[in-house]
Structure formats: C-alpha cells, structure tokens
C-alpha cells in the first residue's frame, strides 16, 4: 500500500521529508489469527511530545514494541530518524530510551546495581562515565536515598521511577514511555509530567502512551488516537481540537421534544445534563434556533461549545 512512498524516503536524501523521529507505514501485527494492530501509519515529528491515546487493548503497547524492534511486525515498515528498523537498530536504538510494559528489574539487586547493569549495556556510555550516569539518573527521579536498598522492597511508585531512570541513563534523542504514570500517586504523576516537560525543553522527542486523557492533554503537543488496532486520528493537539466538530449547547426543559424536532429536520443532537448538544457539522446555529422555535420548544439559552479532547476521544472510540 505504501511501498512506493517509503522506497522514495529510504533511498534519497534529496527528497525533502519532514524531520521525523519515528515513522511507521502499514504496520500490522497478527498474533496467531488475531489482528492486534493493523494499518498503523504513525508520524512522530522530532521535538514533539506525542501522546498515544487509546483504551486498554487498542494496540498501543504492540505498536510501541514494534517501533523499538522488540516485536517483529507481520507487515509494514518502521523508521527511526529516517533509518529502517530492524536493520539500523544498532545505530539508532542507542539514542532511544524507553520504558515499556512497566519497569523490569532484578529484585535481589539494589536500585543502583540494577542501573549499573543496564548502563553496562548502553552503547553510548563510556565505561568510566557509568557510575556518574547512574547516580545522576537516580537523582533525577528522586531515588538517591533508596539507591542501595534492594529493588524487592521498592514501592510501586519507586519501581516506576526506576524504569524512568533506566530510560534516562543517557541523554536521548527520543524517549518512549509506555503508561509512565501507572501506579503513581498524584505527586508522582506531577513528577513524571515535570520530567517530560524537561525533556521537551531540551529538544528530546517524547512518545507517551496513556489511556488517560488528562495525562495527554496536560503534557503533549501532538496526539495519536488508537482504536481497535488502528490510528483513528493524529496530529497536533491544537489542530485536532479545532478540527473537531463544535457543538451548540441548547438549554431547554423539553429535552426529548427538542431532540425529536431536530432529528426530524436531519440535525444530529443528543441529550446532555443541561439540555441538548447539537452537532454543527452539517448545519448552523441560526438554523438550529429557527427549527426549535418553529417546533414551539422553549429555549432558555444557546451557546457554542468547543469539545474537549475527552469528547473527541469519546467520539472516536465510541463503538457504533
């Protein structure tokens, strides 16, 4: 489907391409006969904080694992910084830090020993720089005091922060965080948001997956919404918000009659707590008001309401 397009990108530097930290085309993953992910065309612009939003089971983690070379896609292509995976794994992955599917560490080792072990595998770390890098990462996530305790005794939040520390052992160009605030208390969540903001400020591209909208709304510049294994919307957060259908909130005591009257005139509307919400995609505000008046519906108040990301999310993932 997208082979011609990608061939062009792969071969020539002359073709002007937007600077992308990550790019997938036609990504597909089958587990036995179940389609986990299909037709995933994802663009992560360099410098962006992209929120990958989707309910549990929508294929976020599978997509991330394929993007990092952990899982082999059934079909499709992956590029990181313009280089194809898995061939270029050894040259691009050192620049990528990731926390995937929760933190993974050995319970019998201390936090510091665990990180020393991770650091030993990091290609971009010079052997002499390892102890300092580990201390710095521990400091950054606030685990310095607990560094010499066994990982076994860490709280859920501390474990999550260890995962973050491992991803941040080396200055990265791209950081992938899969559900980073899982199990964190509000203070911990704020800390993670601060870390993401820091990374963004320093020019690092960040991909955060979450099933929580507030999370994405609070931290991201870009958003991609996954639903049942496919990307149903993606783009800059502000574009997505603007492009989304504005609604007209009509305050009225006769909710049912109002909805019926509008529907009789082929204007989509639905009941909300304060009255009805009218979709303005195919109509205009004056026409809605006129229709209601013609139907003798009392109207107390009418005002335009821009949908929040939450509404967008609900719309996109609503099962028909």
């Amino acid at each position: 489907m997208t082979f011609a397009e990608t061939a062009g990108v792969g071969t020539a530097d002359a073709v002007p391409t937007p600077v992308l930290a990550a790019r997938t085309r036609g990504l597909r993953k089958l587990y036995r006969n179940t389609v986990a992910v299909d037709h995933v065309d994802l663009d992560v612009p360099e410098g962006a904080v992209l929120g990958m939003l989707g309910p549990n089971g929508s294929g976020k983690t599978t997509t991330i694992r394929m993007m990092l070379g952990l899982t082999t896609p059934t079909a499709g292509e992956i590029e990181l910084f313009g280089a194809r995976l898995p061939e270029a794994a050894q040259s691009v992955l050192p620049q990528v830090g990731a926390l995937v599917e929760g933190p993974g560490f050995h319970p019998f080792l201390s936090g510091r020993e665990n990180l020393l072990r991770c650091a030993a595998a990091e290609p971009l770390l010079k052997s002499a720089a390892i102890p300092a890098a580990v201390s710095e990462a521990l400091e950054r996530v606030g685990l310095s005091d607990a560094a010499n305790r066994r990982y076994r005794g860490y709280s859920l939040g501390m474990k999550q922060r260890m995962g973050l520390a491992a991803a941040l052992l080396v200055p990265r160009r791209f950081v992938v965080l899969d559900e980073p605030t899982n199990g964190l208390d509000p203070a911990g969540t704020r800390e993670v948001r601060a870390v993401i903001a820091d990374l963004h400020k320093s020019g690092t591209t960040v991909l955060v997956s979450s099933h929580l909208l507030s999370e994405v709304e609070a931290t991201c510049t870009h958003v991609a919404v996954l639903h049942q294994g496919t990307v149903v919307a993606q783009g800059e957060l502000k574009d997505l918000l603007e492009a989304s259908n504005a609604g007209l909130l009509v305050s009225t005591p006769e909710v049912t009659a109002a909805v019926d009257a509008l529907r009789d005139n082929r204007i989509p509307a639905r009941a909300v707590p304060d009255g009805i919400l009218v979709d303005l995609a195919a109509t205009s505000a004056p026409e809605v008001v006129a229709t209601l008046v013609r139907a003798d519906i009392p109207v107390y108040e009418v005002h335009r309401q821009r949908t929040g990301l939450e509404d967008l999310f609900a719309q996109l993932t609503e099962t028909p």
Binding site: L68, G69, L70, A89, Q90, L93, P94, V96, A98, V100, E101, G102, P103, G104, F105, H106, P107, R117, C118, A121, E122, P123, A166
Partner: peptide, 12 residues
Amino acid sequence: HGTLRGLLLAPV
C-alpha cells in the same frame, strides 16, 4: 522480570 527488554533496547 522484564529485564530482557531492557538489554534488547539498549540495544544488545
């Protein structure tokens, strides 16, 4: 333990 991922991601 989830640590194999870490090594493969480093990457080794």
